[in-house]
Computed example of a mutant assay.
Amino acid sequence: MAVSVPFDEQYLEDLMEGAGIDALLATTKHNVQHLLGGYRFFFFAHADATGVSRYLPAVGIVRGKLDDSFYIGAGNEDWGTAGGAIWVSDIQNISWTSIDTARAAAAALEKRGLARATIGVEKSFIPADALDTLRELLPEATFVEVHPVLESLRGVKSERELELVRTASHGIIDSMQASFGLVQPGMTKHDIAEIFRLEQTKRGLFYEYALVTLGGGSMNRSPSSDVWRSGTSLSIDSGGMYEGYIGDLSRMAIDTEPTARQTDLLAQIETVQQEARTAVAAGKRGGDIFVTALDTISKLPDGANMKFVAHGMGLITHEVPRLTSTGPVPYFGAHANDPLKSGMVLSIESWFEDHDSGFIKLEDTLIVTDDGWEAPGDSARGWNRTGASL
């Protein structure tokens, strides 16, 4: 039975034409997964290194000729592709090195009359030896950056992809609440991160990281031997993944009644988070999320010490849409003036750093809809009480 193409064919063709690209080679696991409709070879799902080289899958797509598409997988990848869930008919599971992949890709492109074509490659990710081999075997071809094309294609998620984002987001919040019921003062940040890792794993999520911040003092969020003290705040911020798709959320906890100051600060953070949502809907200017949030912050008692950021996400963090040029990750806010589209996924986060009251943060995953937004995992937003007080 034929498998349908999992992306908008015409949109991809238009993107490639606009970039002047005749054919593309996707070699990152996230773009391969997107182009193949969710397929990721289980054997190398997270690791790349093998033998004397690395796993390097490649999807080749010719502009306007999807029937000429090809896939190059590892020498043992028949284990993965035999299920027949890939729409590409030309599957070559022959590669044990990055050079093997490049040679097979060059041969496939030449066979399709593209030896002198403009070929889009992922320059930040394709290994040097693979690109050298492509240039050696296709000396008359021109190799250009394909990243903007592929990330634009990924920007609007399908319903299947959105369901994976929902599962990841709900799983993260469930894992946080379960962890809050188990942690106690006297534990280290390493201890707390490990409890959270196990809770995520129980829920079928891939644990990527836990940013753990304890009370006042150090704002370093990496796991460490720092010990959590009773009466101080606990922040857990996680970007867990479900089948490659990310949910990115942050919640707060404490083992005692929060102080009036802590309660007030979290309430101010919540005000920013909720006001920012009023700027989210299909058709609204993406950069207005920042305009709304920063205007709200400017009117709050502790706004001078608050920070805010919003960014796109999906198979990677900080993908389309990019809404600011002044965020913590330095890139150009190329989509600040563009309208949001239904099916885009955003992370919206506000936080406050204070050496007395601690690091206080909320972060939410939002799905853009025609009439506003959906917030999967939108619970546990207040001061969650931990196991010491249960």
Rank of each mutant, 00 (worst) to 15 (best):
P185C: 11
L150S: 01
V62K: 06
G303K: 10
L211R: 07
G239Q: 03
L346T: 06
D90M: 01
A130R: 10
R197T: 02
P376V: 03
V52N: 12
S98M: 10
W96D: 08
T188I: 07
L315D: 01
L56T: 01
S69R: 01
H147A: 12
S158A: 00
D378W: 06
F352T: 04
S379H: 14
L294S: 12
A388E: 13
G18A: 13
D22H: 06
I21N: 11
L346H: 08
T133P: 04
P185L: 09
A336I: 02
G314W: 04
F7C: 00
D100R: 11
G37E: 01
Y209A: 14
T386G: 02
V165A: 02
G377L: 02
R197H: 10
T256P: 03
T292M: 11
L164P: 07
L234F: 06
V3G: 01
E159M: 11
D100G: 00
V280A: 12
N305F: 00
D295V: 02
S389M: 11
V280C: 10
D356I: 09
G216H: 05
T259F: 15
Q33C: 13
I72G: 05
S225C: 08
G244I: 07
K202T: 10
G343L: 03
G312T: 03
H46C: 03
P376Y: 00
S4T: 14
L137V: 06
P339W: 07
E163I: 14
E257D: 15
L234N: 09
V345G: 02
K299G: 10
T27C: 11
G377C: 01
W351P: 06
I192H: 05
M306W: 02
G113R: 07
A106M: 06
A128Q: 12
G327S: 15
P57L: 08
H318E: 14
S350M: 02
D48L: 10
R322A: 13
V345K: 12
I126T: 02
G64L: 05
E243H: 15
M187K: 02
G64E: 06
S222K: 13
F143L: 01
L234Y: 03
Y242C: 03
G215K: 03
